[in-house]
């Protein structure tokens, strides 16, 4: 066990020394990793934020029944009774035209304009919480509600959520494709970096093999090197995205304030951040492993025929 640990400790130290020996090259390589990872990770963050908004919307499917402006108290009570008889709905709320007007005044900042209208243009309305009703059930409920007396409009605005979900699915595929494509590029970058290192250290590798080094012993420092570069590259990408999101949130909060609402982008969750680090570290590891395997067999072949 202590021998195993000392071998890994030695390999890790060699990898760190290798990074320190060529700081500019190492930094450039890490920057390449971070930039390449930032794009798919950035799109992923955007999609996750949109998914959250869409999720909030689908979690609270609502139907709004707007009554005719001439509807009276008896009509309202009749609809109230009808709604109470519907077990499929999770609940409903009556919003009188007076309350609706008051809320509009408070939230939109158009109090003066509304005051000048002279009369209340808003109808009485029932806002119905549909819970997790299926599209078919929603449609049936809509038809039934539409048939009640003094009902002017029945609005079910979940179509945009479905469209957004479909777009998010396309976006998810785009992220997977970009991540695969860029991942392959990063593996190739690491393959080449390790190839150059192996060419530089070829004498030592050849000698080590002749005096009894296993392939694992030779491979290990390069694997640590690839993994470290991948992980540090991902950490830098995370930081770049954090700075970008902070800056965007400043601009978004200003925009949202104008519409009297709040809007902020969330960064990657801890779980997704960890996945980003592991993904990038694995890419570095794969590139290094592939390169070492290929060049070790090349060295074996050349030292045999020489």
């Amino acid at each position: 066990m202590s021998s195993w640990l000392s071998q890994h400790g030695y390999a890790l130290m060699r990898a760190l020394r290798q990074l320190a020996a060529a700081p500019v090259t190492s930094l450039l390589s890490i920057i390449v990793f971070s930039i390449v990872l930032s794009l798919p990770a950035g799109i992923f963050i955007l999609l996750e934020n949109l998914r959250e908004i869409s999720g909030q919307a689908t979690d609270t499917q609502q139907m709004t029944i707007m009554l005719d402006t001439v509807a009276g108290q008896a009509d309202i009570e009749l609809i109230n009774t009808q709604l109470e008889k519907m077990p499929a709905i999770e609940g409903f709320l009556f919003i009188s035209k007076e309350i609706a007007l008051q809320e509009l005044k408070q939230e939109s900042g158009m109090a003066e304009v509304i005051h000048n209208l002279g009369q209340n243009p808003l109808p009485d309305a029932f806002v119905i919480n549909l819970g997790h009703m299926s599209a078919n059930e929603i449609e049936k409920t809509q038809v039934v509600a539409q048939s009640w007396p003094k009902v002017a409009h029945v609005l079910v605005d979940t179509d945009w959520v479905r469209k957004l979900d479909a777009m998010l699915e396309v976006g998810r595929l785009v992220v997977i494709m970009l991540a695969s494509l860029f991942g392959a590029a990063l593996v190739i970058v690491m393959f080449n970096t390790i190839r150059l290192q192996m060419l530089t250290g070829r004498d030592e590798i050849e000698l080590s093999k002749l005096i009894g080094a296993t392939d694992g012993y030779i491979r290990r420092p390069f694997l640590y090197f690839g993994t470290i570069q991948g992980v540090v590259g991902a950490a830098l990408a995370w930081l770049l995205l954090y700075l970008a999101i902070t800056k965007l949130n400043e601009a978004l909060s200003e925009l949202a304030r104008l519409y009297a609402t709040t809007l902020t982008l969330n960064h990657l969750s801890w779980k997704d951040s960890l996945i980003l680090l592991l993904f990038s570290g694995t890419l570095g590891w794969i590139g290094a492993r592939w390169s070492v395997a290929r060049h070790l067999s090349q060295i074996d072949h050349e030292s045999t025929v020489s």
Binding site: S2, S3, W4, S6, Q7, Y10, D203, E204, E206, L207, S208, L210, I211, G212, A213, Y217
Partner: peptide, 22 residues
Amino acid sequence: KILYDRNVFANVMLPLQVTAFD
């Protein structure tokens, strides 16, 4: 096959590093 990027001691140490001597 001497490694010129390290001193005499480190050159002689190499076979022991390979076999994970303490």
